[in-house]
Design a protein around this nucleic acid. Structure first.
Lengths: 191, 191
DNA sequence: AGGATTTCTTAATATACCTTATTTTTTTAG
DNA sequence: CTAAAAAAATAAGGTATATTAAGAAATCCT
């Protein structure tokens, strides 16, 4: 179980001694998934938050009329879960599927809460994680509201080139909120 | 300076004794604004986060071609700022204007950081604040991607009836990412 | 390798939403 | 209370994006 990347990730925001490192690592479980398999399915209780060591994951939900909306992608060094349902112990509203084979480290809600209590500075770590997530999401909202699809697509490929390279056109389209057909037209117009 | 609502807001997430209450309150300043005046303008350093005691505020940005996008509204018992710029000490990208006369309590970045250090459980409070903000924003993203304007408008009026009642059609339209003319059509179609 | 899926492209038609312009209503200020 | 200004409603014509359908290309499976 490779935990180097995870410890580096945490140490970007808080500093930990060896004993604290060990205490965190004790709570982590490795979970590897093959391409196209799921780490979470809609309706299952969302008990874990996942740290991505390698590979790419996609969280998406299916709305009443059957259309997919990609909530987020996650790659190496990112955290992913159905945050609302994870925090509130509810059945997941999203599916999380491996776009390509992934290696993840997962942390349960119970263990996360234990960390918050026993290692108070983990609150600081998670606060900063949530701050960043919130700011990113707010920027996405504004861009969705103000930019046409073509510009949103260019922003996406520029901001997340490694992800853009690996995911299908259909998955990208569902992240941008447009149909695959229209994204295909947008791509064709590139000159 | 009325601080009851603020203390109640904090105590929803963490418990505080009298001494801790006092330590927080010492850092707060009251700021009242009249209708249409600004508590923050684009380009100014965003030094404060604001807790709303009464009234309604609107955060919006103006994109290159002059169109407004409403980032968020805030009413009684909400916090508002340009979070990204506040946390990073940067010039604001948004304007925050009073939709109606407001009474707020503001907390500076410096004082917030002091609280994080001296009163570690304030990290917990802010973590939960950010968790909620992130989950709300993520839900908004999904709805923007999957719902047509009419449904988004209905969601908005249902979720925030007090805000919907007070803000103008133009402001609502810029929150939904549509033109005022089209929102007017949507409203007209209601039967 | 070769058939079977899935993904991507293309194109015609349809629709949601925008732009511009005008009129009506509401709000603001003197 | 009235004039001026701002906001909202209405309508015609235009554009971005969706839908449907079909064929081409890539990928998957034994």
């Amino acid at each position: 179980m490779n935990t180097d990347l995870l410890l580096l990730n945490i140490c970007k925001n808080i500093s930990l001694n060896n004993e604290e490192n060990a205490r965190i690592l004790r709570f982590l479980e490795e979970e590897k998934v093959t391409r196209n398999s799921f780490i979470l399915r809609e309706g299952e209780i969302c008990d874990y938050i996942y740290f991505v060591n390698s590979g790419i994951l996609r969280a998406y939900c299916i709305n009443p009329d059957g259309k997919e909306a990609t909530v987020m992608f996650a790659m190496k060094d990112w955290w992913i879960t159905d945050m609302y349902c994870f925090l509130n112990g509810l059945p997941a509203m999203v599916n999380i599927q491996a776009v390509e084979a992934c290696s993840t480290l997962k942390l349960s809600k119970v263990h996360l809460d234990t960390l918050f209590t026993e290692l108070p500075k983990f609150n600081t770590f998670f606060r900063i994680l949530m701050q960043n997530a919130y700011c990113r999401e707010q920027l996405r909202t504004i861009q969705n509201l103000t930019l046409p699809a073509k510009d949103r697509y260019e922003q996406f490929t520029k901001k997340y080139p490694q992800i853009a390279k690996k995911v299908t056109l259909k998955q990208t389209a569902s992240y941008l909120g447009i149909t695959p057909e229209f994204l295909s037209v947008i791509r064709g117009k590139r000159d």
